[in-house]
């Protein structure tokens, strides 16, 4: 019941915050289970760890002992990669894109979700289905007309143009998620405030928004992750090398003249680390948000 945010309450509420709740009958757990789980753990983390190691080695060390812990940590790889790959500009552009996208999606999805959760509009069931369909529509299908439309509107090769596309792509899902969160907030809160003479705006800002804050945080995280990692739209709509977000900055560097895997590793780590830290700090909310989506693309 947590795969799409149609009518179910937010995942956290339903699952008791993912509390460990072992089956009463687990009894003896064969050590084989742990062995297999650890093998999967190695499969998931091993490549990341080796990638991190490679970013701190010299090229010759990587060639002779690719699997070992780096003997001396070559932090200078990071400085070199930062400069050669232009990662600073990429991160800055991505920061602009992520902040712009998240802010816009929160406003767009916030308004729509509030309207859908409270106004009992006719045809809202159809609209929900439309949003579901439109958030699983192939981007490639409308990519070509969108590209030429953007060229005409002078939105091609501009960060703002990229942000607007992300608004369109990410807001349907965010709306559904936020709506399913908002319908769990009791209406009595708002009615009580109205009885006390609060205007509609005050109700919105002092009652609804504070209560919906966790929902907003979830959609902000999911949207930020999607926008930061997005590749297809970014590579299609941004040509100017000074405007490339970090995903295409890294791609350009990797595809370019460099054959130095240690520098690719360092540039990659520079891109991964911000998201990794954010994820580790807020992993529970991340996992709830993303897994309640059933979206995200393969």
């Amino acid at each position: 019941m947590t795969t799409t945010p149609t009518d179910s309450p937010p995942a956290g509420a339903a699952r008791g915050r993912g509390a460990a709740r072992p089956h009463p009958v687990t009894g003896r757990v064969s050590s084989l289970t742990y062995v297999l789980l650890c093998a999967l753990l190695l499969f998931a983390l091993g490549p990341l760890v080796l990638f991190a190691f490679s970013s701190l080695k010299t090229q010759s060390e990587l060639a002779t002992s690719p699997l070992s812990f780096p003997t001396s940590l070559r932090w200078s790889n990071f400085a070199t990669a930062w400069e050669q790959a232009n990662m600073g500009a990429g991160l800055l552009n991505s920061l602009i894109v992520v902040v712009g996208t998240v802010a816009g999606v929160c406003v767009i999805a916030g308004c729509a979700a509030y309207a859908m959760a409270r106004l009992d509009l006719p045809g809202s069931g159809t609209f929900i289905t439309y949003l579901l369909v439109s958030s699983s529509l192939p981007t490639q299908m409308f990519l070509v007309p969108l590209f030429y439309l953007w060229t005409k509107l002078n939105l091609y090769d501009s960060l703002f143009g990229l942000i607007v596309i992300y608004w369109g792509l990410f807001s349907p899902f965010a709306t559904l998620l936020l709506r399913s969160f908002m319908i769990t907030i009791p209406r009595e809160f708002e009615e009580a405030a109205r009885m006390d003479g609060a205007g509609e705006l005050r109700v919105l800002f002092q009652v609804v928004l504070p209560n919906a804050l966790p929902g907003f945080l979830t959609i902000a995280l999911v949207t930020a992750l999607s926008a930061y990692n997005e590749f297809l739209i970014a590579v299609t709509f941004i040509q100017d090398s000074s405007l490339l977000p970090v995903s295409t900055t890294f791609f350009t560097f990797q595809q370019g003249f460099t054959q130095d895997y240690t520098l690719i590793g360092a540039a990659g780590m520079i891109m991964v680390l911000p998201m990794l830290l954010l994820f580790l700090a807020l992993q529970r909310r991340f996992i709830e948000g993303v897994s309640s989506s059933g979206l995200g693309g393969a």
Binding site: P47, L50, F51, F250, G268, F279
Partner: peptide, 21 residues
Amino acid sequence: VAYFLPYIVASVITAAIWENL
């Protein structure tokens, strides 16, 4: 958390990790 971690890594990075490996 560990199993989920590769999912948050951008596709371009995942590709580079395995290209190197």
